[in-house]
Amino acid sequence: MDCRKAKQRLSKADWSADRELAEHLRVCPTCARTAEAEKMLETVLQAASDETYPATPPAILRSEVLARAAAQPRKENIVRQILAQLRVRPRLFAGLGLAVIAFLFATLVPFSYTITAGYETMIHGVDEEHAITSEHLAEALSVLNYENVSVSVSRSGPEYDYHITGLPSRDAAREAGAVFSSLTGFDGIPECVPVYEMVSGSLYAQVVEKATRIEIDTEGKTDEQISNEIRARLLAQGYSRADVSVTTDPGGERRIDVQVGREAGDKETEEVLELKLRNTSDISFDVHPDDSIEKLEIDTEGKTDEQIAAEIEAKLAAQGKPGAHVTVTTGPDGKKNIEVTINKEEIR
């Protein structure tokens, strides 16, 4: 007899009387174990079916169940529970309902609102002596990486009006005006105005759109450096006035006060300001001189000396030093010699 047959016979009720099977079980330990398990199963099932325990008297059982029912409030399904709560706490549910409506209103219902899409610079009343072509001005601006700007020139009588559009920030608009003054020597005041655009979006989108986010690493920086950095960033983001004060108390806790404002000509809008500082460790400091020239970085690859000089002048003009005169010469050994002359009176 093989094991398969043996296991088939083991499933039958009267296998213990099967001699052939008994012979196989004597020589096959695996089937013997199966038989042992089967016998054990039969025994434990028989023992368990014979076991009888005194049942709880019905009267006691009933009182126990009723006591349990009294102690345990009946479990309702979720809808009934909500309805029951609604009856008990109508105000809570009214509040929750309003909150849900407000949330849906703020995130789903679209509204029209205006955003600042960019800035433009207008220079009026340029005389013939200071006039340059629009291509020349656009080329100078492209040096400063303002490649998507468009320059238009219109003539009104003997004077020219310049209109530079597509500038990304107020700072860029001022820079464009400074570049024009630097190139032409024109001393008129350029007018920088924001360009508004009407868009449609939810209230939430509106708030996110208008939020001003500034992230600053404070590692090893003094309070003054931090306040200068915050101020510079705020001005770059289009604020005309940014009063920033950073103070550190003896306990090492930093306090930052920021007051911002837009120019009078700008449209009044609600502002949301978010400041994020990283590595707020405290280190001793040196005073940073206000009138120092910031580091200029210029890529000279493939540029002529004149182009490099024009770029330096443009960048200096952008830093508020429009009267700078730059000379770039290349020596026989290939080294460049750069001379920068700045008229201090013009800076003032």
Partner: peptide, 23 residues
Amino acid sequence: EGFCRKLAGNRDDGDDLYQDSLL
């Protein structure tokens, strides 16, 4: 009651199951 006790594996859990089911 016996069914519940055997199903649950012991008397305590069985009685608890029985009363809970009756409730």
